[in-house]
Write a protein that binds this DNA or RNA. Structure first.
Length: 596
RNA sequence: GAGCCGGUAGCUCAGCCGGUAGAGCAGCAGACUUUUAAUCUGUUGGUCGAGGGUUCGAUUCCCUCCCGGCUCACCA
């Protein structure tokens, strides 16, 4: 760097430093960052663009590995020559034709050894690369060569000083008065390189960088912040979740979880679309609370000057659509519930709800178990998945092959709770049992709710393998159809897997008079102090009066399903940006007054 | 909301029964033309989460607060 460039860079970096420090402690600079900012400032001072946007890659890292796997001669070390040139060279070393290729990515490792440099780059194919490299190893082994035993999601650039001395020196060996006064290369920078594929003498597939009318290697984006330790990575959960972008850069398995999540969503849509369901989007802001028992978030519409709830469930809107003739309908979207956070609860979570006319909850059981089994195969390759650990520390295996077990609440209370039929019908006896187990049940809870809560307490450890729980009391299900033989119960199931509730479904109540009465019962409970009741929705009653065909509906907690299929025990591992308290230096009220 | 545990360099972590801090990686300087956590030599870097108290002296002890993790409660 020239003396002039250095002085200009220093001044610019100092100015930025001051501005950032004033703005927020989040943007505080450390020595490493000041160095990198100075490099960027120096680039500008020398008249170069530090963030160019004119590099067009012609291959991804996955394309590159595929090229090496496409011809057995490419498995052993070889040098590259242009296509059309004589492959059999006179020097004795193997030479093979390779196409001129341009690749771009983030630098994950730099290894300069004298006058050669090895760079490892990561691009959008990073999730596929471990498999690519394993395949490369397999092919090499089959050809009688050593395995590379490489893991990690990167592809190698090889840069020999001979290929482009000016660029090499600029990026790795800056000297006083060098012709190009640009920045040096750092881990975390995005680069674009060009050259031909070859395989190093240790057998690593690589791009042999070379110059033509432009340099062999260019910095496309300079990273100001250093990446976490290359060996230990980033493990602090708070930082991982707050700065998910860093987590995704350095943790291969995190990228894989979210790739798999995308596949699960895709699989759900394919499954339902192929069965004639129509995907819709219904309001996320509700004037009337309904569709589930939960405390809501409240917001306000300024122009209309009216309060709104963030929805706790799309149920009532979706059933209006069935009334409207969309006999098979589904929605995948967020619900919002104003409750505590836990390893299984995020305030906003993704819910699939689907409704099917001329079906019962029993039909939906078959549909749900088929869906989950098919998703498991599509995503993990098997209906047998591992999720968490058994008490003895071994991986817990869950079999997701249909049909799933079915159990009635009454039977669960008898088998796992040791209760008799008489006790099950006796609220005082149930409450006594709950107390002996240390289970707290709300004093306002009616008999049905006591039964369900006690069931969940005694049965949950036994609901590891997928189990449909049936025969819910009517008072806990204000939107479900009464059983024809036992009107105190409703035609409903919940699906438990791994001890957590994955799904909830029932035959829908389509009798407008009964529905009206049940809403009124909800209002009564609200008056008694229950905060999680539904409100009277007269338009919904009106819709039912036009006629809801016999219908069954089902909700599936998508985040929990993703947890199950990615062996994640914490919901935060499957949500890209889980809710957290605001970080120091990012106070919410700071956002309200931008001019302050 | 309650209990327990934690917050030390950019990252991963040691340490301190009170005398204002160390390692590895990253960074910087140098050697090295096929590395694989390259190696070797030298070296920079810290308001020890924040505030208060005790003390001659606090990263260490005490209190309060902030943030996180785990468990419980509510919930899907």
């Amino acid at each position: 760097m020239s003396a002039l460039g250095r002085a200009a860079a220093g001044a610019l970096a100092a100015r930025l430093d001051l501005l950032c420090a004033m703005e927020s402690p989040m943007l505080e600079r450390n020595e490493l960052m000041r160095q990198r900012l100075a490099k960027i400032a120096a680039t500008r001072a020398a008249g170069h663009i530090p963030y160019p946007n004119d590099f067009v890659p012609t291959a991804t890292s996955a394309d590159a590995y595929a090229w090496f796997a496409a011809d057995a001669r490419r498995l052993a070390p070889f040098s590259p020559v242009a296509e059309g040139e004589d492959a059999a060279a006179d020097s004795g070393a193997l030479k093979l034709p390779a196409p001129w290729t341009r690749m771009a990515g983030r630098v994950m490792a730099i290894n300069v050894k004298g006058k050669v440099a090895f760079l490892r780059i990561q691009d959008r194919c990073a999730v596929d690369l471990p498999a690519c490299r394993t395949r490369d190893d397999d092919l090499r082994e089959a050809a009688g060569l050593d395995r590379r035993n490489q893991d990690g999601a990167t592809f190698q650039f090889f840069f020999s000083r001979d290929a482009d001395p000016e660029t090499f020196d600029a990026l790795f060996k800056p000297t006083e008065g060098a012709a190009w006064d640009g920045p040096r290369l750092d881990i975390g920078d995005f680069i674009g390189g060009q050259g031909r594929f070859f395989r190093t003498k240790t057998g690593e597939p690589s791009l042999h960088l070379a110059a033509n009318h432009e340099p062999a290697l260019r910095i496309l984006t300079k990273a100001v912040r250093p990446l976490p330790d290359k060996w230990h990575g980033l493990s602090d959960k708070e930082t991982r979740h707050r700065q998910r972008y860093v987590d995704l850069i350095v943790n291969d398995e995190v990228r894989e979880v979210f790739r798999r999540r995308a596949k699960i969503l895709q699989g759900i849509r394919q499954f339902l679309d192929s069965r004639g369901y129509v995907e819709v989007e219904t309001p996320m802001m509700h004037p009337i609370l309904g569709g589930a028992a939960a405390r809501p978030f409240r917001t306000h519409h300024n122009a209309l000057d009216m309060p709104l709830y963030l929805r706790i469930a799309p149920e009532l809107y979706l059933k209006r659509l069935v009334v409207g003739g969309i006999e098979r309908v589904y929605e995948i979207n967020r619900n919002f519930r104003n409750e505590g956070l836990s390893v299984r609860h995020n305030p906003e979570f993704t819910m699939l709800e689907f409704y099917r006319a001329y079906a019962t909850y029993e039909d939906l059981m078959v549909e749900v178990e088929t869906l989950i089994a098919e998703l498991a195969v599509a995503v993990t390759g098997s209906t047998s998945v591992t999720w968490g650990l058994n008490a003895d520390g071994t991986p817990r295996v869950i079999e997701l092959n249909a049909p799933f077990k079915r159990v009635r609440i009454r039977d669960g209370l008898k088998i796992w709770g040791g209760l008799t039929d008489a006790e099950i019908a006796d609220e005082a006896a149930l409450r006594k049992k709950a107390e002996s187990l240390g289970v707290h049940i709300d004093d306002h809870a009616p008999l049905g709710k006591v039964q369900v809560e006690l069931f969940e307490a005694v049965a949950e450890p036994h609901l590891v393998q997928p189990t449909f729980v049936m025969e819910y009391p009517a008072e806990t299900s204000p939107l479900a159809r009464r059983n024809d033989l036992q009107p105190d119960y409703v035609d409903r199931f919940e699906l438990f897997i791994g001890g957590i509730e994955i799904s909830n479904a029932f035959s829908e109540l389509n009798d407008p008079v009964d529905q009206h009465e049940r809403f009124e019962l909800q209002l009564l409970q609200k008056a008694k102090g229950d905060e999680e009741t539904m409100e009277m929705d007269l338009d919904y009653i009106r819709a039912l009066e036009y006629g809801l065909p016999p219908t069954a509906g089902c909700g599936i907690g998508v985040d929990r399903l993703v947890m199950l299929l990615t062996d994640s025990e914490n919901i935060r591992e499957v949500i890209l940006f889980p809710h957290m308290r605001p970080e120091l230096g990012q106070k919410p009220d700071a956002a309200v007054e931008p001019g302050a």
